[in-house]
Design a protein around this nucleic acid. Sequence first.
DNA 1: AATATTCACAACCGCTATCCG
DNA 2: TCGGATAGCGGTTGTGAATAT
Length: 312
Amino acid sequence: MRNPSSSSSARSRSTPATPCCGKVGIKRGPWTPEEDEILANYIHKDGEGRWRTLPKRAGLLRCGKSCRLRWMNYLRPSVKRGRIAPDEEDLILRLHRLLGNRWSLIAGRIPGRTDNEIKNYWNTHLSKKLIRQGIDPKTHKPLYPNPNSSQISNIPPIQNSNPSSFPLEENARFDRAIATRVIDNFPLTNLDQFPNQVINDDGAENRPSGDGFNKGSVLQSRHEQNEEEDYTGYENEDTFSLFLDSLINENVFMYQEQQQLQQPNNIPVPSGEPVISSSQAIHHGSSCEAEVSYSMAAFGEKDGVLNSHDLA
DNA sequence: AATATTCACAACCGCTATCCG
DNA sequence: TCGGATAGCGGTTGTGAATAT
């Protein structure tokens, strides 16, 4: 991996002089350690935000957009460096299967990883890996439905970091059934209101004010201002977060049961999906356990909970 | 050793959503 | 209501490093 700060600003040579902010004389290309230090020191002193005017205030010959990107993707203390771990890779696969190219949403569930990093990792590693396995990385469906006509039949399968997460197609059917139902109940704006989350040293999750957290904080302030009104967005946010957490743990029914406790008859189950029986499981406690077993069997896991050793 | 190719990823671009006067 | 400013997102580009020939 090349050192992003040590290389010369070759991009500025090769790219036409059309700075993203429309200003001439703005430096582009790789950041130098000196620039990094100036930016980091300034943000530590004055905080994030007001990116357009930040370069001038900090004394940088960069556009605000570039400063923001550099801070978000590289300089932020919460950014984790290093290789994507197998369990992180597996989580990316699962979340992508559920959310598609919603990189910021995916990144929000993987502490310390940025959307850009996950996007890059997907494009350079995971999408190719899925293709080699005969799986369409966009749909997570088989590229060649008929195995007899498979053009990749002679290609040995890639060993997945977490074999229990495959076969993907089985999982995808299940996940999409859930996702369809949930996304229908969480409009796009609500989905996008889920900020990245930062894990504190003590392990608690916070929602700081920068890096996409503005929407969440605005949402909260709106909620506080309109407590008298029938406003459900904030509840949806918590519910969706809970849902994603449950997916991460592969315990979808924990989510569903909490849904039932909070809002009975909240999410209609579409017909024709295998998960439809889960609603029966909720309403008929005796069949719940069997349905959990069925659904989790599709994930190749036991007891419906994804343990850390399962991911290792 | 020289050259070509592939890989990995930082950075940029264009666009959209939201805020705010 | 409108329009400018701002923040954020996802797609794409282009570079240096690594590897193959």
